[in-house]
Simulated scan of single mutants.
Amino acid sequence: MIGHSGAFAATLAASHEVVTTADLWYAGRLVAAGLPLVDGQVQQDADDDIRARLTCTIACPTGELVPDGANGLTPFGGELHIRRGVRIPGGAVETVSLGWFRIQQTDAEEAYRRNRAGSWVSGGASIEVEALDRMSAVDDSRLLAAGKPPRGATCLSEIRRLCRGLLPLSTFDVADEAVPAGLVYEESRLEAVAALADALEAKAYAGPEGALTLTPVAPTDPVWTFQGTAAGGLLAVSQVASRDGAYNAVVARGEADGDKPAVQAVAYDVTPNSPTRWDGPYGRVPTFYSSPLIKSVKQAQRAAKTRMDSLIRGRERLYRIEAVPVPFLEPLDSVTVSTPRLRFVGQLVSVDMPLTAEGGAAVYTVRALESGITVLDPTEGGDGDAA
């Protein structure tokens, strides 16, 4: 979660004035501040190596922002810094950064008019912009030759080395480890950075201030509550259901020994009333696990049961919620969602943040464990049972 004041958070619970700013930078120099945004949004997805994408339309009454080489909203080095916030009662304005975005493409529609001297001049332009966060610089800077980490390298030292000079580096609050044995870099610098972050069970991304950031993927305590009340900000909830990863049996086996076949055992999901139970309407959907450490049927049975139990406990549901925009929430933040029918704690997977008040609600995708979802009776408002 991005740092903010309590007054900012409290203002979101009532009707408020939205404040958004867009500044154009080039080569570390501010070119134009307070660009007039017509509309737009910032989309962030924790599952993407380039986490954030900006699409917006900018009005330019003079036409001076029409891209021309290195000038204007140029895709050849231009960056947009986007902030969104509120006017707090009393008049103060507080905003948070939604990111620094490298312009990828523009589509400028410019009109012309005659001035009083009879000359044709710009009558203004509408410029559509597509931009990606600063991890796109890591993606662009592909490795010229395959290679491997130097002797004694750690994951964090390699991430710093691979990204140095491409975007600012921040302090990483992640425990370091040696580089995984046998790691080889191919052409993609971004894939190499992602692999090193995965080894630390973390995500590498360009943070809101444009610096390289590493965040653990493990869920934390919830930092915000979306509630289906007048002040709770929650407008709608829909569930995204999928068969992907919903296995109802685990086959665990060892390795064959000469002419002897590998020992194996099977564990099934026989949870009563489970929609994915083995031999139920869902069907038979096994997954397989093998290990050279499995030498006996008993070991195979234990391994299969352990993994089946883990799959059942770890089953997830995806929810898509529409809510009053909360600009300081980020992917991987944990939130509480409470409706008259459901209550659960989940982790934000994606955030679609509108840039203007006219853009309406923000859209969040939340991943929640089935075991932590409580179904309520909407007619009573009391506690219910876990889903």
Rank of each mutant, 00 (worst) to 15 (best):
I2L: 01
S5P: 07
G6S: 13
F8H: 08
F8A: 01
T11S: 11
A14F: 13
A14S: 15
A14N: 15
H16I: 00
V19Y: 07
T21I: 07
A22V: 14
A27Q: 14
V31I: 12
A33Q: 07
P36G: 06
P36N: 01
Q43F: 12
R51Y: 06
A52W: 05
R53I: 13
L54R: 04
L54M: 06
I58T: 05
I58D: 00
I58W: 00
E64P: 03
L65A: 00
P67T: 06
P67A: 03
D68S: 12
N71H: 13
P75W: 07
P75A: 03
G77F: 00
H81S: 02
H81N: 01
G85Y: 03
G85D: 03
G85F: 05
G91Y: 12
A92E: 13
E94T: 01
S97C: 06
Q104W: 10
D107I: 10
A117E: 14
E130C: 00
D133M: 01
R134L: 15
R134A: 08
M135N: 09
A137P: 00
A137W: 06
V138D: 05
S141P: 00
R142P: 00
A145N: 04
A145M: 13
P149Q: 04
C155V: 03
L156W: 00
R161C: 06
L162Y: 06
C163S: 15
T171K: 09
F172R: 09
V174T: 02
V174Y: 05
A175W: 06
D176I: 04
A178S: 15
L183W: 04
V184I: 13
V184W: 11
E186W: 15
S188T: 07
A192V: 09
A194M: 05
A195F: 08
L200R: 05
E201D: 13
Y205C: 03
A206R: 03
G207M: 09
T213I: 08
T213K: 04
T215E: 14
A218L: 11
A218E: 12
P219A: 08
P219D: 06
D221W: 12
W224L: 08
W224P: 00
T229M: 08
A230D: 04
G232V: 05
G233Q: 03
D244P: 01
A246P: 00
Y247R: 02
V250S: 07
A252V: 10
R253Y: 09
E255K: 12
G258R: 12
D259L: 12
P261V: 11
A265Y: 04
A265S: 11
P272Q: 08
P272E: 06
T276N: 06
D279Q: 13
P281T: 14
R284F: 12
V285P: 00
T287N: 07
Y289Q: 00
L293D: 15
S296H: 09
A300E: 05
R302I: 10
K305R: 15
T306K: 11
D309I: 03
E316K: 15
Y319H: 10
A323E: 02
V326Q: 10
T336G: 01
V337F: 02
T339S: 14
L342P: 10
L342V: 09
R343M: 11
F344C: 04
G346E: 07
L348Y: 05
A357L: 02
E358T: 10
G359H: 04
T365S: 07
L369Y: 13
G372I: 08
L376H: 14
E380Q: 14
G381L: 09
D383L: 13
G384Y: 14
D385C: 03
